[in-house]
């Protein structure tokens, strides 16, 4: 679990996870093209994410594809958020989304 928190503590690594959430199964090259980071930096961050099990890797032929693996985050949520809190938290998250979306909708 320490690995997961350490991996998530870095904004560049969170950005990489966001990129995979938008488009799963990208190669290192795909990820580098869309980010303002050196290839070495992206490669290093991916290794940290992989070690924390937040990124799963699949080889397809000679291509190494990276997939977002949210299971460890789900396990953390299960540890501190029980069944009963969840519906209340979902309601709060919905409210937050609705309130934050409003200015954009009016424009």
């Amino acid at each position: 679990m320490d690995d997961v928190f350490k991996a998530l503590a870095d904004p560049s690594r969170r950005e990489l996870l966001d990129r995979l959430r938008i488009e799963n199964g990208q190669t290192l090259g795909d990820l580098c093209r869309r980010l303002d980071m050196t290839r070495q930096a992206v490669s290093k961050h991916l290794a940290v994410l992989e070690a924390a099990n937040l990124v799963a890797v699949v080889w397809q032929g000679r291509e190494k594809l990276h997939y977002l693996n949210p299971v460890p985050i789900h396990e953390i949520a299960e540890r501190w958020i029980g069944k009963f809190e969840r519906s209340r938290l979902d309601a709060l998250a919905d409210l937050k989304r609705a309130l934050e979306a409003k200015p954009g909708d009016d424009e």
Binding site: N24, G25, N53, A56, V58, Q60, Y67, N69, V71
Partner: peptide, 10 residues
Amino acid sequence: FKPGTVYVTY
């Protein structure tokens, strides 16, 4: 088949 979702747990 091409993988679309890959989930790993220990």
